[in-house]
C-alpha cells in the first residue's frame, strides 16, 4: 500500500518537517484522491511541541482530501494512553480530523496522565466578533476573550511545582493568547495549543493550518516590507522574508503605540531564557536566548533589517542555523516556545 506514512518511535517537530511532510508530498503527487494513512503503531512518544503540529496537519489533510484521515495506533502503546488523556482523540473526533479504530480504544484501560496536560483548540466560529469593524479593536476583543481562557486553562500548569516566577507566568499566558489571536485573525482556521511542563521547563506549542501570513497581509492590503527590500535573495528565502515582514509589522506597531504583539512576545520569551521558533510554509526561524538575549541591534531603528541580515549571516544547513529551510512545506503558522526553568 503506497499511501501509508509510517512514523518513527519518537516524533519531534524536526522529524515531522523533515520526513513526514516529504512523504505526504510524494503520496499526494502520485495520487491526489487517496488520503494517506498515518501509521503510528511504532510510535511511543510525541514531543510536546509536535502534538499540536500533528493535529493541525491532520486538519489540513482533512480539508485537502475532504474526509477524516485514518490514524493507526498500536494497541499496547503508551501513545494510546496519551491520545485519550490529552484530549487528542476527542478533539479529532469532534472536528472530524482523524478516525481511530474504536476497538483499540475501547479495549485500553487508560490511566490518567497529568490532568492539566490537555490540548485545547480555538473555535473560529464566533458569532459576534464581526460587529466590531475596526480591525485593531477586533483583535483586542479576541485577545481579551482568549486571555481569560488561557488563564483558566494554563494558569495552573504554569504555576506548577517548578516555581516559575509570577511575571513570567503572566507573560506566558498573554503570549499564548496573542498567538491564538494571531491565528484567528490571520489564518481563519482552527488552531491547537498544547502546554506541557516538567521539572526542566515548559513547552508551549501552537499550530494552525490556515491561509497564513502572506494571504492575510495581501487581504488587509499591508505591505510585506522585508520581502520587497530583500527581493534580490531569490525565491529560496521568500518564506523567511514573509515571516520577517510580519515581525517587522509587529515591531513597527510596537514602536508606534506600544502595542504588545508577536515581536514583543518574541523578545519576552528570549529574555526569559527561552527559545522562540516560528514556522511558516517550509521555513522555520529560531530566536534563542543564546544569540538574541542581549542583542541591541534594533535600538533606535525603524525596522528590523538588522535582524534580517544577522539571521541570514548565521544561516547554514546544520542544526544550529537560525533559519531552517525544509524541503516540503504546508500552509499554516506554527509557533513553538520552550522556556527553561529559572535557575534557583
Amino acid at each position: 500500500m503506497d499511501n501509508i506514512i509510517i512514523f518513527d518511535e519518537k516524533i519531534s517537530t524536526y522529524y515531522f518537517y523533515n520526513n513526514i511532510l516529504r512523504k505526504s508530498f510524494e503520496i499526494y503527487s502520485l495520487d491526489r484522491e487517496t488520503p494517506p494513512i498515518l501509521d503510528m503503531r511504532k510510535t511511543q512518544y510525541i514531543t510536546p511541541s509536535a502534538v499540536p503540529v500533528i493535529l493541525s496537519f491532520g486538519d489540513y489533510l482533512r480539508k485537502l482530501y475532504k474526509q477524516p484521515i485514518e490514524l493507526l495506533i498500536g494497541s499496547e502503546s503508551s501513545l494510546l494512553n496519551f491520545i485519550i488523556c490529552s484530549q487528542f482523540k476527542s478533539i479529532s473526533e469532534k472536528l472530524q480530523i482523524f478516525k481511530i479504530d474504536k476497538e483499540i480504544i475501547e479495549s485500553w484501560n487508560y490511566k490518567e496522565l497529568r490532568d492539566l496536560h490537555k490540548i485545547s483548540y480555538t473555535n473560529i466560529h464566533y458569532t459576534d466578533v464581526d460587529r466590531i469593524k475596526n480591525p485593531v479593536k477586533k483583535r483586542d476583543y479576541i485577545y481579551d476573550c482568549l486571555v481569560d481562557k488561557s488563564k483558566a486553562v494554563y494558569g495552573k500548569i504554569l504555576q506548577d511545582t517548578h516555581q516559575l516566577p509570577i511575571n513570567i507566568i503572566d507573560a506566558t499566558i498573554s503570549s499564548i493568547a496573542e498567538i491564538e489571536t494571531n491565528s484567528i485573525i490571520y489564518s481563519n482556521s482552527y488552531s491547537f495549543t498544547y502546554v506541557a511542563s516538567d521539572k526542566y521547563g515548559t513547552n508551549i506549542s501552537i499550530a494552525d493550518s490556515g491561509v497564513g501570513f502572506e494571504r492575510s497581509f495581501i487581504k488587509e492590503k499591508r505591505k510585506l516590507n522585508m520581502v520587497e527590500k530583500y527581493q534580490k535573495l531569490g525565491p529560496k528565502f521568500h518564506n523567511y522574508l514573509v515571516i520577517m515582514s510580519v515581525l517587522n509589522y509587529s515591531y513597527e506597531k510596537h514602536l508606534k503605540d506600544k502595542r504588545a504583539d508577536l515581536w514583543t512576545l518574541m523578545t519576552n520569551v528570549v529574555k526569559c531564557n527561552g527559545i522562540f521558533k516560528i514556522q511558516y510554509g517550509n521555513t522555520q526561524v529560531i530566536f534563542s536566548q543564546n544569540s538574541c538575549k542581549n542583542c541591541k541591534r534594533n535600538e533606535g531603528k525603524k525596522d528590523i533589517s538588522s535582524c534580517v541580515s544577522c539571521l541570514l549571516e548565521r544561516q547554514s544547513e546544520d542544526s544550529y542555523s537560525p533559519i531552517k529551510l525544509f524541503g516540503v512545506g504546508f500552509q499554516g503558522v506554527r509557533i513553538e516556545i520552550a522556556v527553561d526553568k529559572e535557575e534557583d
Binding site: S120, Y121, N123, Y126, D128, I142, C145, K149, A152, V153
Partner: peptide, 19 residues
C-alpha cells in the same frame, strides 16, 4: 452579556460564566 464563542472547552465554560 454576549457569550463569546471562543470558549469551546467545557472545563472553562463554567468559570467563564462566573465572570
Amino acid at each position: 452579556t454576549y457569550l463569546n464563542g471562543f470558549i469551546e472547552d467545557e472545563r472553562i465554560k463554567n468559570t467563564s460564566r462566573q465572570k
